[in-house]
Nucleic acid binder design. Structure first.
Lengths: 257, 257
DNA sequence: CGAACGCTTGATGGCCATCAATCTCTGTGG
DNA sequence: CCACAGAGATTGATGGCCATCAAGCGTTCG
């Protein structure tokens, strides 16, 4: 259905296009942090020495946490993941979506984890990092720690904005805001623009992210489509009227960087 | 109404009781970080050299952000604060409550801030910290940076849990979970236990935190009171049946440390 | 080719927002 | 000392948004 279902996925291709050749060897971690502070040559060298083991996981099967005291986290290099928690009554709340370049499971290594789960929405590739390697790099170049904190801070801002979205907006506005935010985040990594983007989520994923029922998600999608605002079909999100959609959602992307 | 309205507030007294005398001079920052990692003598000395200027703010008047590139943040030493964002339609969503020991405005210095506001719920005292002083301490003792990251990570976990609360629970469960979490956090700093705690919030604050109307908050409070679960009156929260309340909310405090 | 998954649409009802009115309590100023 | 204003709390009436139940469709895949 979605272009994300097949290899080779277009994400890596798009990300590499237009990037100066001498930077293409930077690790996912170095790429991530250089979006927050400008890294010197020495800092880049130090970062690229943090060993990041490439790994893959298949869609739909949750990433398992290896015991309570995890020492590894990931940077998502390709594909989409959702972070969620199951309620006692069986309902699910997705509280964040990870797209390429995002941290994955970082909280599990920084604190005794709560029972958060991660579902790859499509087949994914990650770079696995030992937290101690990272701390070692921080010791060598303390400024890297501040870049890392900025990255963590942005993640928290995204979750906070998501909370506001669910707490004080109706279903139409939630939907609009959700896709506008996703679009803005994907634009930063070069795989979206104001006309739209590939989106591998199902309507069930969307429902669990927005705190709605899947049935109502379907109605809202139809409503917004019939209003000529945006269309989500066949794994593609098309912004038909970006400005009106932004007005509806009250979308202000300033928290994203 | 609440004991928080009058000086000297009981918080500092309680926190200091039972703490060895030689530690009573630790800065709020040192106290905060030592709840995440055990700090050595030298680390404590380094931390206590981070200058923290005591300041006060009065209830109800928002903390103003001093320009876009803020270099200061606070650690709340006494009182309660709520962090919120106003929607275009005028409604308000509180996404976090700060209690003594919590960071305040940290995100404003780590990233270009979105328009988050802070309202002191009662008169507050804070320790003001220059971010560069902190980074200087990180350079001297890199392990402090990791403690700081753990603290940030917990803050994000709290916001995520709040999101889940609003997304997938009905009004009764939200209310129960909200006060159970607050109780657990306050217990960690010694100003609450399983029988209850002082709470200076109004029903309007609660409504904005839970994404409900103030009218409905009132009805839910009455409902839970009549069920013998908990009582919120005259600035005091009383857990009348802590276990049944926990069951109702599906409360699992593991994410709090 | 049947089962599973995802999408779509209709019907019904409940939770909670909204409007409105009243009450208490506190602080303030004439 | 009392009148008054304002904040906060409380309760009733009405209605809308969205959950839930139910049924059916198309596509994919073993």
């Amino acid at each position: 259905m979605s272009v994300f279902d097949h290899a080779p996925p277009p994400v890596m291709v798009d990300r590499l296009q237009g990037v100066p050749f001498h930077k293409q060897k930077d690790s996912p971690l170095a790429k991530k942090l250089s979006t927050f502070i400008k890294l010197s040559g020495r800092e880049l060298i130090e970062l690229n020495q943090v060993y990041d083991k490439p790994r893959s996981f298949i869609a739909g099967r949750d990433l398992v946490r290896q015991g309570k005291f995890n020492q590894k986290f990931y940077i998502l290099s390709d594909g989409w993941v959702c972070s969620y928690k199951i309620q006692p009554d069986g309902s699910r709340q997705i509280f964040d979506i990870q797209v390429p370049g995002d941290f994955l499971g970082l909280r599990n290594v920084l604190q005794r984890s709560s029972d958060v789960s991660f579902e790859p929405i499509v087949d994914i590739s990650v770079a696995e990092i030992q937290i101690d390697d990272l701390f070692f790099a921080f010791d060598a170049v303390p400024r890297l720690a501040t870049a890392f904190m900025r990255a963590m801070s942005r993640d928290e801002a995204v979750v906070a904005e998501h909370l506001i979205n669910i707490g004080r907006r109706n279903a139409d506005e939630r939907m609009a805001h959700f896709f506008l935010e996703l679009g803005a985040r994907l634009t930063l990594i070069g795989v979206a623009n104001k006309s739209g983007f590939d989106c591998p989520m199902t309507q069930y994923h969307i429902a669990d992210a927005l705190g709605l029922s899947a049935v109502h998600v379907n109605r809202v999608l139809r409503n917004l489509r019939e209003q000529g605002l945006f269309t989500f079909r066949n794994g593609y999100v098309a912004f038909n009227d970006y400005n009106r959609l932004s007005d509806l959602a009250g979308f202000d992307p300033s928290y994203l960087n």
